[in-house]
Design a protein around this nucleic acid. Structure first.
Lengths: 138, 138
DNA sequence: CTTGTGTCTGTGCCAACTACAGAGCGTAAC
DNA sequence: GTTACGCTCTGTAGTTGGCACAGACACAAG
């Protein structure tokens, strides 16, 4: 196989390797319609163009920012046509609100856990402040 | 002489209502072995004792602290017998580390999103700094 | 007796992948 | 030529932690 030139068609594992995603993820995105059906060799092996690579990179970046697959669908204009900057901004603001709520929830968990663990001695006995607290009749 | 308090047995919906969980969650916890099979009426309706209620409350509290179902299984001593305080502490510390990692990940997402959104004007045009950024050839 | 509500069971569905089985294809060595 | 190995193909099932529904049965009120 030739050294990877920018426009050479890639096989599935090559594309996955370049973008650092799992092999099967690519087939999954194709199945759910985020990626178009790629070209094929005569025997049916998938061949990915440079455009396919650009699109997959977009999807992976959006996912790494926490956007859901449905969000990515919107960002790509699959749902209602290409979104305006206002649409994108609204989506991103909503997503950011969601992230912040999740952070707040996790912080509360951490705080509660810290309070409960304060009495946890780490002894070798079955008596434990943490389990006692959860069993407590409040 | 009755030793246990003569609290009435609860039906599934009553138990769910009291502890504020979904009806089906109870059946699910029974199915995966977190809750024991409860008593039944002659016709097969489940009847929950006070002990069942205590155990379910424990499970729900542990879950609300973010412990996984497998963690709860360990806390209840289903896996390897009743855990020592040291076991519980180790489990809780590991879980806390996990929570903190998730917080850190979410904060990074929020920060990256904020940086990318800085150029997002909210205009009615399809040109958007956010999508441009994700498509960028870096 | 009928009507309405509750419970029973099994099953399917959700996100977002990941893994695997069994078949076929490609290529390098021998 | 063929044999071996590795990659790809397909469909399907598993993951986590439940929620929802269909169709059958139970039970209490009127």
């Amino acid at each position: 196989m030739a050294i990877t030139s920018p426009r050479a068609a890639l096989k599935r594992a090559e594309l996955a390797g370049r973008l650092g995603c799992n092999l099967e993820t690519i087939r999954y995105y194709e199945k759910i319609g985020l990626l178009p059906e790629p070209a094929r060799t005569a025997s049916g092996h998938r061949l990915y163009s440079n455009g396919d690579q650009v699109r997959l990179r977009f999807i992976l970046r959006a996912r790494s920012l926490g956007f859901s697959v449905e969000d990515v669908r919107s960002l790509l204009g699959i749902n209602d046509g290409r979104p305006s900057c206002a649409d994108v901004k609204a989506l991103a603001e909503a997503h950011r609100g969601d992230i912040r709520k999740r952070i707040a929830d996790l912080r509360q968990m951490d705080r509660r856990l810290g309070e409960i663990m304060a009495g946890c001695t780490g002894a070798e006995t079955p008596d434990c402040a943490l389990t006692d607290n959860l069993f407590e009749d409040r």
